[in-house]
């Protein structure tokens, strides 16, 4: 039982990251019906951006100070991810706005490979694992025999806060409403005076910012990053988005946590679970698409974005 709860906790932490990344997939899909295959790489470059500040720009005296280092790392991570995403949208996706569906998907795969390779080749030491700073204490505490790391608490709290903030943004603000309008009927949105190119950019920006935060979290939890981390995390997050019902923000969050928990439990309870740990996401993905293609909140695929 204790082990079960422990895995639930682990899964929740894992799921927080998936959920944050999944939001980017789901929003972009809601707006332009593109599976942004390169979104995992946006997450990855964010982590590298954060690492860069810590390693090269922060003076040593400040690097140990959580209140300086953590915001600095997060801000630069977000800036790098957002910059990359905006360039990607402008240069690679926008020219294909009216092309047949598969063209932008193939482009997205190209962008994904390009970004991975760019980091591998041009980031100092990019070909190997890079240690990521433990910005928050690496300590843990016990609740009823279940061990929880402080980093995990941070990860879950920040993720949930961001998710709530995004919901409020999309529901309440003018830009948020413009996003929903664009996802429901882009042409009609234009007739309202909405600049849908701007809305699309905002969507990429929001998704990238959340992914960047997820990237920093991932680095802090595993203490290392490399150019490959975006691929699997991206696919799993996509699975989470589909699981929740793509286009649906609440769904992405729910899907993220569920997938994290499924993965944690399966790794624990299925014989030799850990050598199969990356399979569960795919099995979940296939199962969802086959049984309930609309996802869990399928009836509300409606409230896209």
């Amino acid at each position: 039982m204790r082990q079960f709860v422990q895995q639930l906790v682990n899964g929740t932490v894992l799921g927080a990251t998936y959920g944050l990344i999944a939001l980017g997939y789901t929003m972009v899909y809601g707006i332009i019906q593109l599976i942004n295959f390169a979104h995992g790489e946006i997450f990855m470059v964010g982590a590298f951006g954060g690492l860069t500040v810590y390693r090269y720009w922060l003076p040593e005296s400040l690097a140990g100070n959580v209140w300086v280092a953590l915001p600095a790392v997060l801000i630069v991570a977000i800036a790098v991810s957002v910059g990359t995403a905006v360039l990607m949208e402008r240069l690679a996706y926008r020219p294909l706005r009216n092309a047949p569906r598969l063209a932008p998907l193939i482009t997205a795969i190209g962008v994904s490979i390009f970004l991975q390779e760019a980091v591998r080749l041009f980031y100092p030491g990019g070909k190997r694992q890079q240690p990521f700073p433990q910005l928050i204490s690496s300590g843990t505490f016990d609740v009823a025999g279940v061990t929880v790391a402080w980093v995990s608490v941070f990860v879950v709290v920040v993720a949930v806060a961001l998710m709530v903030a995004l919901q409020v943004f999309v529901k309440k603000t003018k830009t948020g409403k413009a996003m929903r309008a664009t996802s429901q009927d882009p042409e009609s949105a234009k007739l309202m005076g909405i600049d849908i190119n701007r809305v699309i950019v905002v969507t990429f920006v929001l998704g990238a910012a959340l992914a960047a935060v997820a990237g920093v979290m991932q680095g802090m939890r595993f203490a290392q990053i490399d150019f490959r981390i975006g691929f699997l995390s991206g696919l799993k997050a996509f699975t989470a988005a589909v699981l929740g019902g793509i286009g649906n923000i609440t769904g992405a969050v729910l899907g993220g946590f569920l997938l994290g928990i499924v993965e944690a439990l399966a790794t624990q309870y299925v014989p030799q679970g850990s050598s199969w740990k990356d399979v569960w996401a795919f099995i979940v993905l296939i199962a969802v698409l086959v049984v309930r293609p609309g996802g869990l909140l399928g009836e509300r695929v409606a409230t896209r974005a």
């Binding site: 409403k177 413009a178 929903r180 309008a181 429901q184 009927d185 042409e187 009609s188 949105a189 234009k190 007739l191 309202m192 005076g193 909405i194 600049d195 849908i196 409606a302 409230t303 896209r304």
Partner: peptide, 30 residues
């Protein structure tokens, strides 16, 4: 299109093209 709207031309298109999953009030706000 959005610049033309800004200049004071409104277009209620063929087939209404409302935002079906938003409320009446939200449609008006848009």
């Amino acid at each position: 299109a959005h610049e033309i709207v800004a200049r004071g031309v409104a277009h209620a298109p063929e087939g209404r093209r409302l935002f079906p999953r938003m409320t009446i009030r939200e449609n008006l706000d848009l």
